[in-house]
Amino acid sequence: MTADDAFGRLDDDDFPAFTMGRAAEMLGTTQGFLRAIGEARLITPLRSAGGHRRYSRYQLRIAARARELVDQGTPIEAACRIIILEDQLEEAQRINAEYHRVGGSSNSTAAA
Rank of each mutant, 00 (worst) to 15 (best):
G104F: 02
S56H: 05
N96K: 13
L10H: 11
S56I: 12
I82W: 02
R81M: 12
A111T: 12
A6N: 10
E25G: 01
R35W: 02
R61Y: 03
D5G: 00
N107E: 12
E68K: 08
R47T: 11
L34E: 07
L34M: 04
P45E: 09
V102A: 06
A110W: 03
A3D: 15
L46C: 09
I84K: 06
A6R: 13
R61K: 13
A49N: 12
S106W: 07
R57S: 14
Q31N: 13
A63P: 08
G21C: 08
L42E: 06
D11P: 00
F7R: 14
D12A: 01
G8P: 00
S48H: 06
E77K: 06
T74I: 14
E98I: 10
L89Q: 07
A36D: 10
V70Q: 07
Y58S: 14
G51M: 05
R61N: 11
N107F: 13
R35L: 09
Q72V: 02
E98W: 01
R35P: 04
A49E: 10
H100G: 05
G8C: 05
T44R: 15
R94F: 08
R101Q: 14
R9E: 07
T74S: 06
T109F: 14
R57I: 11
F7I: 15
P45H: 09
A92G: 04
T109Y: 02
A111V: 10
S105E: 15
Q88I: 13
I82S: 02
D87C: 08
I83W: 07
A97V: 11
D87S: 14
Q59N: 03
I83A: 00
T109K: 13
Q88P: 00
M26G: 00
G50P: 00
A112I: 13
P75R: 06
L69E: 01
A64P: 03
R47P: 03
G21H: 01
I76N: 06
R57T: 13
Y55A: 05
Q31F: 00
L85H: 08
D13H: 01
P45A: 09
G32F: 02
D87N: 07
G104R: 04
F33D: 11
P16A: 07
E68N: 07
I83L: 15
V102N: 01
I76E: 13
M26C: 09
T29V: 12
E86S: 09
G51Y: 03
D4Y: 08
R54T: 08
A36V: 11
A3T: 11
I83H: 03
R94C: 02
A36N: 12
E90I: 05
E91C: 04
A112K: 11
M1N: 03
Y55H: 07
T109V: 15
P16E: 08
P45S: 05
T109Q: 09
A49D: 08
D13G: 00
S106K: 14
F7Y: 06
I43Q: 04
A6G: 00
